[in-house]
Design a protein around this nucleic acid. Sequence first.
DNA 1: CCAGACGTTGTT
DNA 2: GTCTGG
DNA 3: CCAGACGTTGTT
DNA 4: GTCTGG
Length: 192
Amino acid sequence: MCSRFELNANSRQVTARFNLLAPPGMPNRAETRPTDSALVIGVGGASLARWGLAVEWDSRPLINARSETLASRPTFRRLLGCRVLIPASAWWEWRAEGTRRIKTKLAPAKSGLFAFAGLLDGECFTMITCAAPTELAEVHERMPVILPPEAEAAWVDPAVPYAEMAPLLRPMAGPFTIEAEAPPSPVQGSLF
DNA sequence: CCAGACGTTGTT
DNA sequence: GTCTGG
DNA sequence: CCAGACGTTGTT
DNA sequence: GTCTGG
């Protein structure tokens, strides 16, 4: 599921939206993929972290954590107090249509920045997922957890027990904008 | 980052 | 070799 | 002891 | 590498 997202904003906009004390250094690109650096906001403010936890049994980064089970997974359990916000403006899923996969850009219809729920492990982070609501299920059955803005401060506060935060890990209410992106064009068209 | 696809016709 | 998706 | 999981997503 | 189940 979510293996790509966007933060289409500048440092000043992020500072204002998340009440930061100082403008953060921003990622090089708006579009973030696994292992890329992304902006994360924790109890100590904003910083850059790599997307995906390193695990011993797979060379690929562990980019998602299921909300339904993360409290019982040893890999994530130790991180339940290292909660971070991941500022974003949209994310992508791939809708299966026969054998084709249609890249689809998703965002809350109410425009503006929002925050995914993440867990930080040193310099790497993972993104928490939940079931997708009906409106999005036809695109993809899962989605990243988007926190209600009023819960963002508590989410990053390690003094707040995880048990109080767990109820937040559920599908965001819509509506959403859903934009299918143009299928990739051939690198070289036919000559005639 | 890395594994897997990358295409179609016609049909095992 | 390059692109795509997880 | 030792094979298999360990985590996700999507699904042969 | 470490943990778990048979």
